[in-house]
Amino acid sequence: MLQIKNLTKVYPDGTVALKNVSFEVPDGEFLIVIGLSGSGKSTLLRCINRLINPTEGEIIWNGIDLSKLEGEDLRKARRKIGMIFQNFNLVKRSSVFSNVMSGRLGYSRTIPSMFGQFSKDDIEMGRKVVERLGITSQMHKRADELSGGQQQRVGIARALMQEPELILADEPVASLDPVLAHSILKTLETLNQEDGLTVICSLHYLDLVQRYGTSVVGLREGEVVYRGSREDVRKMTDEQFKEIYGAEAERVGASIEGSVKG
């Protein structure tokens, strides 16, 4: 269970990116965060794993307030939270496998890992994860040689190496075409349903939200303006969606069936 309580983030330049945000995410949820560009989605996700420090509020996860953690404790907590990015944020010049293995850094001894040495078990685990995501044949390529969809799979593999309980996905499919978008989200859905990982994912497209979300949080100008269950989301019309979301909302336009093959 993740509880966000009165979370506020004010950037040094005075921008109030989050205002008193509170909601709960039960374990096993596929929570989708929607909102206009600039509404605070990234800020919210980054506060959770503390890539940025919240100004006020609490982030209680499994009874621990993440917002107060420092140093070793923070790193221990981060290990259990995988993150996936819109731009994949792979280390471009490193190989796919070394990118995947970097998800294991939090569990590895500093000095050997600095030189790319990982334990046998970790390497075995890396192989399995790579296989599960279907990127085995790309393993030894440089990360930036892969297509966008493949890179995002590497990003997911890296997160999985952390043996996470929670996955934060910040617009994971915004740089991908609709077919690939479905394929990536299906992967996340599988992780959510089969492995029981909690997923918090920000998205732009209503049909994707309806298809994958088990619950939705709508943000506007840093405030929660919508909170809905799976059923609420299914019933949502384009007009409602646009109201919360803003005019930018649109349907992705590719059938889910099409994505199964892709």
Binding site: G82, V91, S94, S102, L105, Y107
Partner: peptide, 25 residues
């Protein structure tokens, strides 16, 4: 900085971030 953040997010410490995200770049 995205690459650095990604490595930080895995729970890596400072040395690991330098060796895995800064040096390769």
């Amino acid at each position: 900085s995205g690459q650095i953040e990604a490595i930080q997010a895995t729970g890596a410490n400072w040395f690991q971030v330098v060796s895995h995200a800064v040096i390769p770049q």
